[in-house]
Simulated scan of single mutants.
Amino acid sequence: MEPAISTGTEPIIWIRDNTCGLGPYRADLVETYWRWEQDPAVLVGYGRQQPESLEARTEGMARQLRGDNIRFTVYEFAGDGAVPVGVATLLPDPAVRTAEYVVMLAPEARGRGLGTAATRLVLDYAFHITDLRMVWLKVLAPNSPAVRAYEQAGFRTVGALREAGYWLERICDEVVMDALAAEFTGPSAVTPLMTE
């Protein structure tokens, strides 16, 4: 695990559970985000075939920071600090109070339940703070670890886009999943904050 990025103060954490937390998307982490995005597993998982230059990513960061999407840095609580380990994004459609969900974890953060925990926190935020009624996502069908993580966080499979993606040079389906506010159950990291 790489050391925490320090700006002289602890990172801002908006909501958290015992495993991880969500804070603001940060311009000073652009090179870290870029490194994660160029990982071969991420390129395959997103169905992309080519990497992006750091210069192009830096230019795109300025647009992302000004956009209407809801972006989070995902932090793992390790030792005495919070270590950035991923990015989660909600792409809202305010007219119908829904959003598409996208998440990416650093290679060193995978396989420990952080994707499920972060996804659950994003759904909690989406339903209790942003007041969305539904969040949806697409995942390549062969990516069964991601499908399981999304299911554990509260998503359900609702269909597929046939032959819409690529997985290791092979055409594959994209699974479409959704989560509804009305079905979001279990403990909330947000609602206790409202009663304090």
Score class of each variant (00 low, 15 high):
T32E: 08
V103M: 12
R112H: 12
Q64L: 14
V135Y: 00
W34M: 06
Y101S: 05
H128L: 01
Y75K: 04
G113H: 07
A106K: 02
Y125P: 03
R66A: 15
R57T: 15
T130E: 13
V139C: 10
V42H: 04
D68M: 08
R48A: 15
L140R: 14
R63Q: 14
G67S: 15
Y150A: 04
I129K: 11
V85K: 00
P40Q: 12
S53F: 06
D93S: 11
M61L: 14
G86D: 03
R35P: 01
V147L: 12
G81Q: 14
E108V: 08
W34R: 01
E100T: 12
A146M: 06
V83Y: 06
L29I: 11
W36A: 02
Y101E: 04
A141L: 03
L22F: 07
S53L: 07
A126I: 11
P51E: 05
M61D: 04
F72H: 10
G79W: 05
M134R: 15
W36Q: 02
V83Q: 07
Y46V: 14
E59K: 12
N143C: 02
L43D: 01
G60W: 08
Y75G: 08
V103L: 08
G45C: 03
A118T: 10
I70V: 15
G45R: 02
A88T: 10
Y46H: 13
M134D: 03
T98I: 09
R66W: 02
L105A: 07
V147N: 02
L43E: 02
S144M: 11
Q38C: 14
P107G: 09
Q64Y: 10
L65I: 15
G60A: 07
Y150H: 11
L140H: 12
P142D: 03
P142I: 09
D28F: 07
V139A: 14
P94E: 07
A88V: 12
A109T: 06
G86V: 09
R110E: 01
L90D: 05
T130R: 13
I129A: 10
Q49H: 11
A62E: 11
T116R: 11
A27K: 13
A78P: 01
R110I: 03
S144L: 14
L121V: 12
Y33D: 09
P107W: 00
G111V: 11
A106L: 05
L123V: 09
Y125N: 03
T119Y: 06
L43Q: 15
Y75C: 08
M134P: 01
R97P: 00
V102A: 13
R71M: 14
V42E: 01
V122I: 06
R112T: 10
V83F: 06
Y125C: 07
G45S: 13
G21C: 07
D131C: 11
P92G: 04
R66E: 14
W136R: 12
A118P: 09
R133E: 10
K138Y: 05
A27T: 10
F72N: 04
G113Q: 04
A117Q: 08
E31Y: 07
L123S: 05
V102W: 05
A88G: 09
A95K: 14
N143A: 08
V102M: 09
E31P: 00
Y101R: 02
T89C: 09
G45D: 03
N143L: 12
A146E: 08
G115S: 06
L54K: 10
F127I: 06
G81W: 09
Q49Y: 02
V147K: 03
V87I: 15
Y150V: 10
M104A: 13
P51V: 13
Q49A: 14
Q64S: 13
M61R: 10
H128I: 04
